[in-house]
Simulated assay, not measured.
Amino acid sequence: MAAILSSRFRVLRLDRLQYRADRGAPVRVEQEAEDVLRLARSAGEPVVLYGHSSGGVVALEALVAAPDAFAGAVIFEPAAVIGAPLSGEGGEVLRRARAAMASGRPGKALRIFMRDTVELPDWQARLVGAIIALVPHYRRLIPRQLDDLEAMDRLGVRLDAYATIKVPVVLLGGDHGPAHLSERLDAIQRVLPNGERVVLPGADHGADLKRPAAVARVIRELAEKVFADGVGKAG
Rank of each mutant, 00 (worst) to 15 (best):
R96Y: 04
A187E: 04
R144W: 07
L146W: 07
G129D: 00
L86K: 02
G104W: 13
V58F: 04
P46V: 04
E183G: 12
R115F: 14
M114Q: 14
R115H: 13
V198P: 01
E77M: 03
E196D: 05
Q31L: 06
P106Q: 15
F76I: 02
I132D: 01
I188Y: 09
M101W: 03
A163D: 11
V93K: 01
A62G: 10
Q18N: 08
V36N: 04
V198C: 07
R144D: 15
L60V: 06
P143T: 14
L222G: 00
V215I: 10
P201V: 02
R10S: 09
M101H: 05
A3I: 12
G129V: 07
V231D: 08
P201Y: 04
G177I: 00
V58G: 00
G173F: 11
V118Q: 00
I165A: 03
G24L: 07
E61D: 12
Y162P: 08
A213W: 12
M114C: 12
A213C: 09
Y50P: 04
L12G: 13
D153V: 06
I82Y: 03
G107K: 08
V47A: 12
L63M: 02
E196C: 10
R8A: 13
V191W: 00
D148K: 03
L171V: 03
A79P: 10
A223Q: 07
I131A: 11
D22S: 12
D208Q: 04
R190K: 15
G83I: 14
S182C: 05
E34C: 13
S182I: 02
S103W: 14
G107Y: 03
P168N: 13
Y50S: 01
G230N: 09
L185I: 02
R197M: 04
L5S: 04
I112K: 08
D186Y: 00
P143Q: 14
R20M: 09
L94W: 08
D68M: 03
V29P: 00
G107Q: 01
I75H: 01
P121F: 05
S103G: 10
A33V: 11
L17E: 10
L39F: 11
P193D: 10
A125S: 09
R190I: 01
D116T: 06
D68G: 14
Y162G: 01
S182W: 01
A59R: 04
A130R: 15
I219N: 05
L155F: 13
F76W: 05
A130T: 14
D35W: 00
I188L: 07
A66N: 13
V64M: 07
R140E: 15
A234N: 04
A163I: 08
V157H: 11
G44P: 09
L192M: 08
G51S: 09
R28A: 11
E221G: 06
G129E: 00
R16I: 06
E30V: 11
G195H: 05
G174F: 02
M114L: 14
G56L: 05
K225S: 15
A97Y: 03
V231T: 12
R16K: 12
R20V: 03
